[in-house]
């Protein structure tokens, strides 16, 4: 997979890696979407886990100190 789609700058138009419509372009486009969605999904899982396993001492300490409420 050659990321360069042109041999000379003269007359070149789209100069981005892999070039429009190429397999490389689709691979990285879908990869970027996947990474964004994957991290978002991980964020949701991490939040769920954290909310389920709150440290009781932390809850107590926060409550006792008023935690600025």
């Amino acid at each position: 997979m050659d990321p360069s789609t042109f041999a000379a700058w003269e007359g070149a138009s789209a100069v981005f890696t892999f070039g429009p419509g190429s397999a490389g372009m689709w691979l990285f486009l879908l990869g970027a979407i996947g990474v964004g969605l994957g991290v978002l999904g991980r964020m949701i899982i991490q939040e769920n886990q954290t909310f389920r396993s709150l440290d009781p001492d932390l809850v107590k300490e926060g409550g006792l100190r008023g935690a600025n409420i």
Partner: peptide, 12 residues
Amino acid sequence: PWSSSMGPNLSD
């Protein structure tokens, strides 16, 4: 996003 204009393009 797969268009030739949606990235570095010397004519755009």
